[in-house]
Simulated scan of single mutants.
Amino acid sequence: MTENVTAKSRREAALSRDTIIDAAIALLDSSGEGGLTFRALATKLATGAGAIYWHVADKDALFTAASDVIMARAIGDALPDATPRQNIQTLALAVFDAMDQHPWLGSALSQAPGQLPTVRLLERLGQQVAALGVPASQQWVATCTLLNYLLGVGGQNAANASIARVQDLERTHFLETLSAAWSQLDAQDYPFTRSVATKLREHDDRADFLAGIDLIVQGMLHNTGTR
Rank of each mutant, 00 (worst) to 15 (best):
V56I: 15
Q156G: 09
L79T: 08
W104G: 04
D81H: 10
D81Y: 07
F63N: 01
G32R: 07
T37A: 01
T37Q: 01
L105H: 04
L36N: 03
N157A: 14
G106V: 14
A82G: 06
L132N: 00
A92H: 03
V56T: 10
A49K: 15
S67N: 00
K59A: 09
A49H: 11
G126W: 00
G48N: 13
L150G: 09
D60L: 10
Q115R: 15
Q138V: 05
L91K: 02
Y53N: 10
T90K: 15
G152A: 15
T118C: 09
S31H: 13
G152L: 15
F63D: 02
R85K: 02
V134W: 01
A72S: 02
G35Y: 09
Q167W: 06
P103A: 05
A82N: 03
T90W: 13
S162R: 11
T64V: 14
A65K: 02
G126A: 02
L169H: 10
R73A: 09
N157M: 14
R124W: 02
S137V: 13
G133P: 00
A164H: 11
V119I: 12
A98V: 07
A130I: 03
A131Q: 06
D68T: 11
A131C: 05
S31N: 12
T37L: 02
E33L: 12
Q89Y: 06
L147E: 05
A49N: 12
A130Q: 04
A66I: 08
A98H: 04
T118G: 11
L151H: 10
T43Y: 02
V141P: 00
L169P: 07
M71P: 00
G34M: 00
A66R: 05
S162H: 09
G35E: 10
A57I: 10
T64I: 14
E123Q: 08
Q101M: 03
A42G: 03
L151M: 14
Q101G: 12
P117K: 04
S137N: 09
Q89E: 11
T83S: 12
A94V: 12
T118M: 14
L125I: 08
A142P: 02
Q111S: 11
D58C: 08
G126H: 03
V95Y: 01
M71W: 00
Q167M: 10
A161R: 15
A78N: 06
C144D: 05
A158K: 14
A92F: 08
Q128M: 05
I163F: 09
L79N: 10
A130H: 01
T143W: 01
I88S: 11
A130Y: 01
G76Q: 12
L105S: 05
A108W: 11
S162Q: 11
G126C: 02
N148A: 15
V134D: 04
G154F: 12
V119E: 11
G76E: 14
L169A: 06
L45Q: 00
Q128Y: 04
R120Q: 10
I88M: 13
G35R: 07
A66S: 13
V69K: 12
R124A: 12
G154T: 11
L93V: 06
P113L: 07
A98L: 08
E170F: 07
T83N: 05
K44N: 03
A136H: 13
D77I: 06
G126F: 00
A49W: 04
Y53V: 07
I75T: 07
N87G: 07
L116W: 02
A61F: 12
A66K: 07
G133I: 02
G154V: 12
